[in-house]
Amino acid sequence: MALACGVSVANVYFPQALTPLIAHKFHIAPATAAVVATVTQLGYAVGLFLLVPLGDRLPRRPLIAGLLAVTGVALLAAGLAPASGVLLAAGTVVGVATVVPQLLLPMAAGLVEPARSGSVIGTLQAGLIGGILLARTFGGVLGEHLGWRGPYLIAAALTVLLAVVLGLALPDGPAVVHAPYPTLLADTLRLLHDEPQLRRSVYFQVTVFGGFSATWTALALLITGPRYGMGVQAVGLLALIGAGSMFCAPAAGRWVDRLGADRVNLWCILAALTAAGLLTAGLLGGVAGLVGLAAGLLLLDVGVQCGQVANQARIFALRPEARSRLNTGYMTCAFLGGSAGSWLGARAYAALGWGAVCGLAAVAALLALVAYAAPGRRGPRDDQAEQPRPTLELR
Rank of each mutant, 00 (worst) to 15 (best):
G110L: 12
L162W: 05
H193I: 11
D56F: 06
F335M: 08
L111Y: 12
R377W: 14
D262S: 09
Q308H: 08
V291R: 01
G55K: 03
P226E: 05
D257T: 15
Q305S: 01
R347W: 12
M230K: 11
G337D: 03
G286S: 05
M1S: 14
A65I: 09
G95W: 04
L124Q: 03
A186I: 04
P180A: 07
T183G: 15
P114I: 14
G303V: 02
L299T: 04
W343I: 10
L392S: 04
G341I: 05
A90V: 09
Q197W: 00
H193G: 12
R149Y: 07
L298D: 06
S213N: 13
T123H: 11
M331W: 11
P171T: 03
G43W: 03
S117C: 10
E113K: 13
V363Y: 06
L87Q: 06
T207Y: 12
P171F: 06
G296N: 06
A135C: 10
A186F: 04
L76C: 11
V46A: 13
A214I: 11
A271I: 04
I22V: 15
L158Q: 01
A175V: 07
P114R: 05
N265H: 13
V46S: 06
T92E: 11
I269M: 11
F316V: 15
A4M: 02
A234L: 13
Y330D: 06
I22H: 07
A288F: 04
M246Y: 08
T159V: 12
L88Y: 12
P53V: 03
A346G: 15
G307N: 04
V7D: 13
C333G: 02
A81L: 05
R254K: 09
S339G: 14
V357S: 13
T183V: 15
V208P: 00
L222Y: 05
V287E: 08
F138R: 01
A317S: 14
L103Y: 08
L162S: 00
L392D: 00
A31R: 14
L48A: 07
A83D: 15
A45H: 00
R136D: 01
G131D: 04
T328R: 03
G85R: 15
A368Q: 09
A362D: 07
L124W: 00
G72I: 08
L344H: 08
A275P: 15
E195G: 09
L153T: 08
R199L: 12
L297F: 04
I28H: 02
A243N: 09
T391A: 13
T92P: 08
A45Y: 02
A89F: 12
A275C: 08
R347L: 05
A361M: 08
L80G: 00
L237T: 10
L259H: 14
A340C: 15
V164R: 01
P62W: 01
L50Q: 04
T183N: 10
T274F: 14
V287P: 03
A251F: 14
